[in-house]
Simulated assay, not measured.
Amino acid sequence: MTIHNIASQNSVLNTFISELRDITIQKDSMRFRRNIERIGEILGYEMSKTFDYKEQTITTPLGKSTTPLIDNDIVLCSILRAGVPLHNGLLNYFDTAENAFISAYRHHLKEPESFEIVVEYLACPDLEGKTLILADPMIATGQSLLATFEALKPFGTPKNIHLAAVIGAQEGLDFVSEHFPEHTHLWISAVDPALDSKGYIVPGLGDAGDLAFGKKLQH
């Protein structure tokens, strides 16, 4: 798997990441969602540089212009619920993409530090020969991404696979690299060094779903 860490080069992306992490700024849920959306736009722009292009002739009021345009059939899939703002940011740039949605959440077992990933809802178009963009803002253990990918397999084999994330732990990135196809590309805006005993990213930013949409009742 090829990992593209966008934060390896300083840019305005640093501002959006710092605001997502800041415990005072992140209390504004609308701003939190918007910052994730803006990061999705940046990841989408960088990702687009690797796509296929085909020249098309455009008629203007004064003549004709030949322009290379994206020639990929894109399916954008986000993991509910935290993935929705990231999905929106990517969709702002790939506005003709087909869309898929899947629920994947941690079901905690008897031991407080153990859990399994449960997938309960899935809506997806045909993936055969298409470019799949799988969006999940936080890659902690990487198990949610793998469970989602396994659930999508009955819908066909994509030609290209791109993963889009805001923050990931190195352990999660190693897990994803081991279990996804070799030609997969991961686009991420920050890589953190560790997970805590409950499997949350450190320093991370907290629970992205709760910060974006409010606290939930635990299963």
Rank of each mutant, 00 (worst) to 15 (best):
F51W: 09
T57H: 03
K198E: 14
L132D: 10
L76S: 15
H179T: 09
V191Y: 13
T131W: 06
A151S: 11
E55L: 05
L145M: 14
T50E: 10
Y53I: 02
L205M: 14
I17F: 07
A164N: 11
I3E: 03
I79N: 03
H87Q: 12
L132W: 08
G204N: 13
D126G: 02
G209W: 06
Y45S: 08
I23T: 14
H107Q: 14
S11Y: 00
G209L: 05
R21S: 05
D22F: 01
L195S: 06
Q9N: 09
L127C: 03
A82K: 07
V118F: 02
W187C: 05
I70W: 04
S11M: 02
S48F: 06
K49P: 00
R21K: 07
P154Y: 05
L163Y: 10
I102S: 00
V84R: 09
T131G: 05
A165D: 14
L62V: 12
G204I: 07
Q218G: 06
P158M: 13
H108Y: 15
S18T: 15
R31D: 05
P158T: 13
I39R: 00
C77R: 12
L20K: 01
T67A: 01
A164V: 14
V176D: 13
H219R: 08
T24K: 13
T66R: 13
I188G: 11
L109Q: 12
L132N: 05
M138Q: 10
E111L: 06
L122H: 03
D207I: 12
I17M: 02
D192P: 13
D196R: 05
I36P: 03
A164W: 10
N5P: 00
L163T: 13
K27G: 12
N14P: 01
N88P: 01
K27C: 07
P85Q: 01
H107L: 14
R31S: 10
S8P: 00
N10S: 11
L122E: 03
N5A: 11
M47I: 12
V166D: 09
T2G: 01
T60N: 08
D192G: 12
K49L: 10
T57Q: 07
A7Q: 02
P137D: 10
T59N: 07
L195I: 09
Y93E: 11
L146Y: 11
L152Y: 06
T59D: 03
P154K: 05
T57P: 00
D52T: 07
I42H: 04
G209D: 04
